[in-house]
């Protein structure tokens, strides 16, 4: 029982990381922490792919003279290389957005921001309130 559970050790890690990441994305109100959560979530998927490609006793997939060498599946590695690039792009864009949000709203807490937005939405023509808000900033 334990050995079989330990045998899929990597998958347990993937599973735990995935849940941690997803929980942070959903549960945290801080925009920056959400990005951290997202990164953890994505990383767990990277690990999943790498684990899939691993073959017990396999080596790195390099062609040698000994053609009977067992080697791990290289395809998931390549895929994950691409996924990492995509992940980096996502994170970069998200961080850029957070920087802009911080400079405009003066906060990166979701609750503060939605309070601002609610005022915006309900007093679309009430410029007075807006100007007070902006002055108080």
């Amino acid at each position: 029982m334990i050995t079989s559970a330990m045998g899929i050790w990597n998958y347990w890690i993937v599973f735990i990381l995935m849940m941690i990441g997803l929980f942070i994305v959903i549960g945290r109100k801080n925009l920056l922490k959400k990005i951290v959560g997202l990164t953890i979530f994505q990383t767990s998927v990277f690990l999943l792919y790498i684990t899939l490609g691993k073959i017990t006793g396999g080596t790195a997939p390099i062609l040698t003279e000994n053609s009977s060498t067992i080697y791990s599946n290289p395809l998931p590695h390549v895929l994950i290389l691409t996924a990492i690039v995509v992940g980096v792009a996502t994170t970069a864009l998200a961080l850029a957005l957070v920087v802009r949000i911080n400079s405009i709203y003066g906060s990166i807490e979701e609750d503060d921001i939605s309070a601002h937005d609610l005022i915006d939405y309900h007093d679309q023509n009430n410029t007075l309130k807006k100007s007070i808000l902006q002055n108080s900033k």
Partner: peptide, 18 residues
């Protein structure tokens, strides 16, 4: 035009990435 666009984009990004 409207600063809410940033929040909209952020949410779109996070949900889309998930």
């Amino acid at each position: 035009q409207d600063r809410q666009a940033l929040i909209a984009a952020y949410n779109y990004l996070i949900i889309g990435a998930v």
